[in-house]
Design a binder for these strands. Structure first.
Length: 633
RNA sequence: GGUCCCGUAGCUCAGCUGGAUAGAGCAACUGCCUUCUAAGCAGUAGGUCUUUGGUUCGAAUCCAAACGGGAUCACCA
């Protein structure tokens, strides 16, 4: 409709104004809520072109539009704005189209290039936490958005399964695990603990043991005891200790940190972990078996968490599989002169011409760093999927710099697809008490949080008591749907780019802009349609629409463009805000008119059709957000 | 210090490709269940859009600076 009016105006301009109009001079916007109108033409640009008063220009266009465009009922002019009112027939026809369309708003599947979306990159030594929840819900939802606009999508995660941190858990388990009467160390099955939790516990034990050892070493050094310390380190420590005296508090702390670092390197337990990593890289059978076993426990634990979250993947990548490819790439790049080698053997890239710094890509001992692995993983993916067009990395914004560098390196290595790689950078989740810090024990565990939220949903649902006649299994399932739906919606409704505050109390609220609010509307429409035994029929276009009804059709009409906007911005939040507005409009309508008991049959059918269309869009968007849409609640 | 992100109601957030009187939710207060599910609806109150300049017919929105908050600048991942 908008385009039709624009085109008509451009065509008519020479006779109407005696001048050619450019497309950009015709600016439409949505009409303000409190003004009558379905579309608003901004008249200001015409003043310059036509050299007349704003009032004259507006009136002239008003007269012409009312006269010449069939579907327009009338217009009104307020200041520099021409508000155009469509005939009700137009909106009813629009509703009819929505009702008839197969998957309203969605593009045909697989009509756009294949995109891979990565949305979890857990370490295998720590259980998942609140930050992962935002990451994973966000990535999973973006994958659904891309599908909805026609992309073929591969959902993936990369598992950070190698490196010194894994060896730390392994070592601690060997050293510290109690042995039961059967002579076994602790396992998930003999403790009943989730595998990721068990392994995480030993990672913590390692860190504690390390800190203990560090403390002893530092104290020894303070007392001037350097018995077990290499000469070079001793000299460095003494030098640091001496410079410390003249500095201010902040500098002193920094020096203490440095001394601590040196002490860490002296500690026997860290040395053991390093030795273990060397053994692992050499595929030592015993170490390798331990690594496989403990990682297996973690994967099992993660799988449980993912299944509770309702999230799946199409393909998994393990860094242990890709880091060697990354190393090869670096060596190739070195030959091509993209990288350079320092005298100690370490390999670097100089990005200062691109406004960035120098970056290490391979250690002096030839082992891979984070960047090396990521280069390898990216290339591996494009080898696996030959039709792959681009990648979306859902990773926190603390890694903005890393991805800038990564994409630049891939470009320099000559990979065209590097231009289609996108870092979906999301903000951290803060707690009312501040940042989550594992050292201070303020990390919110994913499993605990989900359990809590479901429990809360149960209590609050029972309070309301709408559930007569449902079986226990159905009820439990519903509590889960509501609890998790609320949590997901809470994390997704905020612009992903922004840092957000997680308030445990608000996250399980049922009222206002929340998941359960939307789910409730869905359930209410569902039972309504069921009671009405609703079947889609052709609508009578002669009906006169109430304002509430028209508002809903207008909002429904926006769905497709909002979906595209969301895909361009990689933002489920855009859909969340849109659907919340839609449901609010629907609720207003629901409370102000009769539907089931409406005696006029055509009107009843219209209102049912409206309800059905709202439910369709609502359930589509809830699906994209990963929120379940219950039939009753 | 360099680079990047953010600053809108008491709180959490929309609005940002310039356009009308800046919107929601929570919290507070007032109404509405004999009528399709009140997890709802209607309403009251709450704002120097951090500040100062600039561009423009018009700025929360664009540009610059200042102030405040955060991230990042590892032979960690």
């Amino acid at each position: 409709m908008e385009n039709r009016i624009r085109k008509a105006l451009i065509d008519a301009a020479p006779t109407l104004f005696g001048i050619e109009l450019s497309e950009s001079s015709i600016q439409f916007q949505q009409t303000r809520r409190d003004v009558e109108g379905d579309l608003t033409l901004v008249v200001f640009p015409f003043v310059k072109i036509l050299h007349c008063s704003i009032e004259d220009a507006a009136q002239k266009i008003k007269a012409w539009v009312e006269e010449n465009i069939e579907e327009i009922s009338h217009c009104n002019v307020v200041g520099g704005f021409l508000n155009i009112v469509y005939k009700d027939e137009h909106w009813i026809n629009r509703l009819q189209e929505i009702q008839n369309s197969e998957r309203f708003g969605f593009s045909k599947a697989n009509t756009k290039p294949t995109v891979m979306v990565e949305y979890a990159s857990p370490n295998t030594n720590k259980p998942l936490h609140l930050g992962h929840l935002r990451n994973i819900f966000l990535g999973a939802s973006v994958a659904e958005i891309l599908k909805a606009v026609g992309h073929k999508v591969v959902r993936t995660q990369v598992i950070n399964d190698r490196g010194i941190h894994i060896c730390k858990s392994m070592l601690a388990w060997e050293k510290f695990s109690p042995i039961n009467d059967k002579g076994e160390r602790q396992t998930p099955s003999n403790t009943g603990l989730k595998g990721d939790k068990l392994v995480g516990r030993y990672y913590v034990e390692f860190e504690q043991a390390l800190q203990k050892e560090v403390k002893i070493i530092v104290t020894d050094w303070q007392r001037g005891n350097f018995d077990n310390t290499k000469e070079s380190v001793r000299d460095e420590v003494i030098k640091l200790q001496q410079t410390k005296i003249q500095k201010d508090q902040k500098a002193q702390d920094a020096i203490d940190e440095k001394i601590k670092e040196l002490a860490k390197n002296q500690s026997s337990i860290l040395q053991e972990a390093k030795d273990m990593l060397v053994k692992w890289e050499a595929r030592d059978p015993q170490v390798y078996l331990l690594w496989t076993t403990m990682n297996g426990w973690v994967y099992e634990g993660f799988d449980q968490t993912y299944s509770q979250m309702g999230v799946t993947f199409d393909k998994l990548y393990y860094e242990s599989d890709t880091y060697l490819l990354g190393k090869d790439q670096v060596m190739d790049g070195l030959k091509q002169g993209i990288f350079y080698q320092k005298v100690d053997g370490s390999v670097w890239i100089d990005l200062s011409a691109d406004g960035l710094d120098e970056k290490l890509v391979l250690r002096s001992d030839g082992t891979a760093v984070y960047m090396t692995q990521d280069i390898g993983t990216a290339i591996d993916r494009f080898k696996d999927y030959t039709d792959l067009y681009g990648m979306v990395y859902t990773v926190g914004n603390e890694q903005d710099y890393h991805f800038k560098v990564l994409f630049l390196i891939l470009q320099k290595l000559g990979y065209q697809w590097a231009n289609n790689c996108f870092h979906l950078s999301y903000g951290m989740v803060d707690l009312p008490s501040g940042k989550m810090k594992s050292r201070e024990g303020t990390v919110v565990d994913a499993d605990d949080l989900m359990a809590e939220v479901i429990q809360k949903a149960k209590a609050m649902t029972q309070e309301r008591g709408h559930l007569d006649g449902l079986g226990n299994l159905e009820k439990e399932n519903l509590y889960r749907q509501i609890g998790l739906g609320g949590l997901k919606y809470y994390l997704l409704k905020v612009d992903p780019k922004k840092r957000m505050l997680f308030n445990p109390e608000e996250s399980i609220d049922l009222t206002g802009n929340t998941g359960p609010f939307l789910q409730y509307a869905h359930a209410r429409i569902s039972t309504l349609l069921q009671k009405a035994i609703y079947k889609p029929q052709n609508l009578s276009s002669s009906a006169i629409l109430k304002e509430e009804e028209k508002q809903i059709i207008k909002q429904l009409n926006l769905f497709e463009s909002v979906l595209h906007e969301a895909s361009k911005a990689y933002s489920p939040a855009i859909l969340a805000n849109y659907v919340y507005d839609l449901v609010k409009l629907y609720n207003t309508f629901y409370q102000s008119v009769k539907i089931l008991s409406e005696s006029d049959r055509e009107l009843r059918q219209l209102r049912l059709s409206l309800s059905a269309s709202v439910r369709q869009v609502l359930s589509s968007i809830l699906g994209i957000l990963g929120v379940d849409a219950p039939q009753r609640m």
